[in-house]
């Protein structure tokens, strides 16, 4: 038995042991934890009292931890900035010339995917999803267009940069307004609706709208830079 097969066998055994341990942990976790005094229960309790949002993850991400979301978005902006600096001399599309069949498909599918992304963003507080996921869906619609049209399609860089910077400024402005008018950053300064309807989030929906716009523009810029590689 050679070394590589022995290594593979040992890794397989380790993985099996770890999965058995995970299953055993899942079995015992419910028995070990005290019933009420966990942070999840506390957050669910507070969420049911203070906000009218059906999806509790949304209210944790944008309302209780709004500053963390701001930090994540700025980290994303920094990474896009680095990619743009590194790949700024790129001209040629990596995946060859245009493709007629894919062009027809992209003409039909592009509005549908963008519409689905907008649905995910605006219904972030009712169903799974939110700003980041919807933004990436919109960006993958643009990836489809890049693949279909080759070198003959470029989204307007000014529009992308403008929407990205405007949504970032809007996000910061929303946080500062919460600090000024309310008691803390991203405080609830709008009126709430009834639980389960579309306009029930207040500030949470605005935050997700800005995050979605920003992520969509950034991911589109990132995929454009990646797909037009430097000539190797």
């Amino acid at each position: 038995m050679n070394l590589k097969r022995t290594l593979a066998l040992s890794h397989l055994l380790t993985g099996l042991l770890v999965s058995v341990m995970i299953i055993a942990l899942l079995g015992t976790l419910r028995l070990l934890t005290p019933p009420i005094d966990t942070i999840g229960e506390t957050l669910l309790h507070i969420n049911a009292q203070s906000t009218q949002v059906a999806n509790a993850v949304t209210s944790v991400v944008t309302y209780f931890r709004g500053l963390d979301t701001l930090g994540e978005v700025s980290i994303l902006f920094l990474s896009i900035f680095g990619v743009a600096l590194h790949m700024q001399h790129s001209t040629r599309n990596l995946f060859g010339a245009h493709d007629t069949l894919l062009q027809i498909g992209a003409q039909v599918l592009f509005p549908l995917i963008v519409l689905f992304g907008v649905y995910i963003i605006t219904h972030g507080h009712l169903s799974p999803g939110g700003g980041f996921q919807g933004g990436v869906i919109i960006a993958s619609a643009f990836v489809l267009r890049f693949l279909a049209y080759g070198d003959h399609y470029e989204p307007s860089a000014r529009l992308l940069t403008l929407s990205e910077s405007l949504s970032g400024a809007g996000l910061v402005l929303l946080g500062v307004l919460g600090l000024l008018l309310g008691d803390r950053i991203f405080a609830q300064i709008l009126s709430l609706g009834t639980m389960g309807t579309l306009l029930s989030g207040g500030v949470i929906e605005l935050v997700y709208l800005f995050v979605g716009l920003k992520v969509a523009a950034e991911m589109t810029l990132l995929s454009q830079h990646f797909i037009k590689a430097r000539d190797v």
Binding site: L109, V143, L147
Partner: peptide
């Protein structure tokens, strides 16, 4: 159903990417 929507609408982009990679 939302995750099923994602698989139905976005999942084919990965296949197209790998098909293009096969030629390129």
């Amino acid at each position: 159903l939302d995750i099923a929507f994602v698989f139905g609408l976005i999942g084919f982009i990965g296949t197209i990417l790998f098909a293009k990679y096969l030629v390129a």
